[in-house]
Design a protein around this nucleic acid. Structure first.
Length: 112
DNA sequence: GCCCTGACTTCAG
DNA sequence: ACTGAAGCCAGGG
């Protein structure tokens, strides 16, 4: 029986950080990965998001690539759910790209 | 039990 | 400045 507080896994580390993303803010895979001490593991962060669908409090829609592009939008149900969620939080999104991404960008290390 | 792919990022030429 | 290739962890076939 694996405890959900098992921080031994890279995935769980990602979940912890993503869950801490404040309302109306977004971050990038590399930012989380780098915060975990694995800047080259950005892919794993994205893959963790894929598994995050099974979790209750993991706002994967607030995690985008370094360009502020909704690369993972395609993995969400519907066609523009991710964009709708972001716009619902006050984040302007045009053509799957976040406007003023640097203004909405939230760095985990910034809070810690 | 082995091989491959995947929501990215960074280094090197 | 641009393009190409490598790296990372985990899950699925």
């Amino acid at each position: 029986m694996v405890d959900k507080a098992d921080q031994s896994g890279f995935f769980n580390q990602v979940y912890e950080v993503v869950k801490l993303i404040p309302y109306g803010r977004v971050t990038s895979y590399g930012a989380v990965a780098k915060y975990l001490g694995a800047a080259k593991s950005a892919r794993i962060v994205g893959y963790a998001m894929n598994a995050s669908h099974n979790l209750p409090d993991v706002p994967a829609h607030r995690v985008v690539n370094r360009n502020g592009l909704l690369t993972g939008k395609h993995h969400f149900p519907g066609s523009n759910l991710m964009q709708q969620l972001l716009e619902n939080e006050g984040v302007k999104v045009v053509e799957n790209q976040i406007q003023d991404f640097d203004k909405h960008f939230w760095d985990p290390a910034q809070e810690f």
